[in-house]
Design a protein around this nucleic acid. Structure first.
Lengths: 399, 399
DNA sequence: CCTCATTCATTCACCTTGTCAACAAATGCG
DNA sequence: CGCATTTGTTGACAAGGTGAATGAATGAGG
């Protein structure tokens, strides 16, 4: 007999999995994750439902322990203060993995995107079997605490909103790899793929600097230039998953050529390679990496300063183009190339001011410094969102 | 006694107004308007509902005469052919008005966007009272057939999805004019405002060349450069109604200055004024209008040809920027400046090819030639869509 | 301190709307 | 002529939303 198993564990066992919820409960959980503690009245307004409906919907969630009433009542304005509801995120765990051509980064996070553990692997090669084996190994290592709800994998390339197949990936040299199915079979955990920019954006929106903002873009600078867009609280997937290929948008008629023979591409000013080459070549040095580049600029090297000024200009033009087209009130900058801002910010601001439409309102541009874990965390967030999609989507059991 | 009133009229009286429908019926009507005749099974798939649900939802609509079964069964593939349902659009009429600083264009259209009548007024001035009076006059003239469901008004400027107040409009010199309320009071017809680019886009999507396409952009060229975006079957409104201010996006480092002192703005190559000035000034002529410009190019005038080539280039760069950012499969060109394409198309295509991201798929670029009525028709379509929004939104009865 | 307006939350009867399972209908194919 | 296939209908059922009435908790104002 096992009735003395411990109360805490018993209660946990009662907490339903996220994908077993009905659509209305799902909507409540989504809203709570997206916008922190909310009273029933506030939820009713957001979900466009009657207060009565929310009493009914939240009750079973409260009983099961999936959500909690916070003690501190929110006392803005007069009238009875609302009882803020929060999701008890600790009951559900997700693993997110970011795949690059030579490394894996992983995090285990709870439903709110709070990171509980991290992991890392160096890949011997980018063969399909190698990558799968290493991911499985990493997941087994990180998931031993049990009860992982879902696994999210972020990679560069074109993918639909919640995809399960890597179509054609030039970084990894893959073509039509059913990665999600392979990982599901090996780990037993439901798995979803997403483009890495989209994953990062989801993380930023859910539990990063974009939290609470309904409309913004995430612009990443590093090995490449990436873009994610959030409109009306939804991460844009784009009809073909193609959102964000603005690396080749022209920002100047002068400047170096890019690999495609274009002059003045954003990429040719902004990518890590553009920065290091841009500084290294004139100086006749082949050892310039990003850190060296920052150091040179810090030391007042004119070439480095100029390269960063130009990068800032390119960034500013891209931001202005984006804001002109979509009217976004905010742009969040991220990626490992972000250190450039220390020297690129003035020219970036100038370029934004210059290229912004006179009738557009200037966006707030926020730098979000983070490591590679943030990309993995984003993938974990996508995995969580996947379970909360309405209607529930699972991968077709195709070959 | 009036039981001999005539069967046809009696049936019409039974047809419910669009805004009196429940949410499920509303969704059916929306889907039928958006994507032509659809069988119940097809509707069930699109709306993600069970076939049973559609039988139930469509029955009262069929009885009331709001929708009809088309005789021709759709016999693709084997199995029982579906019975295509169409909305009987003739039961509901809408009026759309396009307001410019010196003219009004109006159309009366049915629910499917089919134009039944057109009207036009020249404005003595752009005073609020003048414009309102002329619109009311125009509506009374066009609406005498009775039973107008809603009135849509399209104007340049920033407006929310279904707005009711003109905030600040530099073209008309207006500020905070509750135009919708004024027109509702004067005409008794529910009225909604929208930005003109958004209205045109809605018309294109609902019953123009964009019909059946889920994702595309509408780029207009004329007095200004306008943009409308459709993503996942929804017309993008933008967080602040600001979608589409790309007139000042830079397309070249050379070229004339725009009014804001920028060099190489899209506007400075594309607007009607840019074209006419660009040709007139070098030739020392002040009489060049758009028609003259086209004629000059047709006659092989080098200046005119060059100006149109440059315009095509600018257009191509804008299209590439747009497609890079959003991954759109199609762009529809419209506006009264579209005649330029006869001479601008090659340079436009070249610019698209040059500036498109290597990994992006080339969009199909379609020219949609139309008169000013098309803008008014778009406003009528917006009025219809307004009644079908879920949940129903009406203007707050604020002062 | 007491009353009032205000806002939040609950209860209950009711109803809309979607689902499931079973079945009937209409077609092409062999 | 079966037979698979797809569409459409029926009826019992359940989930979930609503409106109105009520109670609860607070600040404002006298």
């Amino acid at each position: 007999m096992n009735e003395v198993q411990g109360v805490c564990v018993q209660r946990r066992a009662d907490v339903p999995t996220l994908d077993s919820l009905g659509p209305s409960a799902r909507a409540v959980v989504r809203a709570l994750l997206l916008a922190g503690p909310l009273s029933r009245a506030e939820l009713a307004r957001r979900l466009e439902r009657s207060p009565a409906s929310l009493t009914k919907t939240t009750r079973p969630l409260l009983i099961s322990g999936l959500i909690r009433e916070e003690s501190a009542p929110s006392s803005e304005s007069r009238g009875r203060p609302g009882a803020p509801l929060v999701l008890d995120a600790s009951h559900h765990r997700f693993i997110g993995v970011k795949v690059t051509s030579d490394e894996l980064y992983a995090v285990r996070a709870d439903a709110s995107g709070q990171v509980e553990a991290t992991g890392h692997r160096v890949l011997a090669d980018s063969e399909e079997a190698t990558v799968v084996a290493e991911i499985v190994d990493l997941v087994n290592e990180m998931g031993e605490t049990g009860s992982i709800q879902a696994l999210g994998v972020g990679l560069a390339g074109q993918m639909s909103r919640f995809d399960h197949t890597v179509r054609s990936n030039t970084y990894l040299g893959w073509d039509q790899v059913p990665l999600a199915r392979l990982l599901e079979q090996a780990t037993g955990i439901p798995t979803v793929l997403s483009g890495d920019a989209r994953a990062l954006t989801a993380g930023v929106q859910w539990s990063g600097p974009g939290r609470g903002m309904s409309d913004f873009a995430v612009l990443t600078v590093g090995v490449g230039v990436g873009l994610g867009i959030v409109l009306e609280d939804r991460v844009l997937a784009g009809p073909t998953g193609n959102v964000g290929m603005l690396g080749h948008n022209r920002v100047s008629d002068s400047g170096p050529l890019c690999a495609r023979g274009h002059r003045g591409c954003a990429s040719s000013f902004l990518t890590t390679e553009a920065i290091t080459q841009g500084i290294g070549v004139p100086l006749g040095r082949v050892d310039v990496d990003l850190a060296t580049a920052f150091a040179l600029a810090e030391a007042g090297n004119e070439v480095a300063l100029r390269v960063f000024r130009d990068a800032g200009h390119a960034l500013g033009v891209l931001i202005a183009q984006l804001v002109n087209i979509l009217g976004l009130p905010a742009v969040i900058l991220a990626g490992d190339g972000l250190g450039m801002l220390a020297h690129a910010r003035p020219s970036m601001d100038a370029a934004i001011a210059e290229h912004l439409d006179p009738n557009a309102t200037a966006p707030s541009v926020v730098a979000f410094t983070s490591g590679f874990d943030e990309w993995a965390r984003g993938a974990a967030v996508v995995a969580c969102q996947w379970l909360l999609v309405d209607p529930p989507t699972r991968h077709p059991e195709s070959a």
